[in-house]
Amino acid sequence: MPKAVEITSITKDFGSVRALDGLDLSIEEGQIYGLLGPNGSGKSTLMKIMIGLVRPTSGSVRVCGEDPQANPVAVRRIVGYVPETPRLYDFLTAREYLDFVADLYSVPFEEKKARIAQFLEAFELKGREDEMISGYSQGMRQKVAIIGALIHKPKILIMDEPLNGLDPRSAKIAKDLLQELTGEGVTTIFSTHVLEIAQAICRRAAILYKGALLSEGNIDDLKRLAGMPGSSLEDVFLRLTGTDDVRAVVEELAK
């Protein structure tokens, strides 16, 4: 199977803080791949390196065979990216914003018009598309950001907590859409804190902890590797990241 992303010995230091520590990862094309890990484990940094937003201190990355540091434009042309807290242009309407993004990707006029209308309908933003984004809720902004990442039909989707703030119906639409796109050969790499979502839609996942790879494989592999084949992904995650001893904390707080 061809590789969508190949990461070799990636290290990233922010001053004295090591965000990624010699990480190796290989993600095959045409799947939904979950990046799991507690806050500060390096997921967002890894995603930013994949798209060339951040330069690694050492190591190499290939996205569909392209180096995002050497040729970021080629990589960004085939990638759709949703950051953790997507900051949009508040002074634009959703339609204007999506029109702007489509133009950055040189989407032809008729195609952008049709696709924007289609996505606005699907994400239930129709009727509010000519309102300035400044008046949107967090969930609505998230939907606009997701549409922005999909507008140019990317081969790879890199999404940092993409379902944050979405209502259940929109989250379901997003998840179904990702599954649909997988069928069309699109690779989705996304991070989430909601392990049920990862369990439900990811074929494979990696668990990061303090910038290093703790475990990688399909969900059953992760459970087996942790020695917890019958457990939930949440239990596996907590065990692997050493944060399973939460009962004492909860009991203390409840006093």
Binding site: T93, E96, D99, R128, D130, S134, G135
Partner: peptide, 16 residues
């Protein structure tokens, strides 16, 4: 903060 509508819903145009 208030939000301002630019034109009536669905009436906005795309940039040519």
């Amino acid at each position: 903060p208030v939000s301002i509508k630019i034109g009536s819903a669905g009436a906005g145009s795309y940039r040519r």
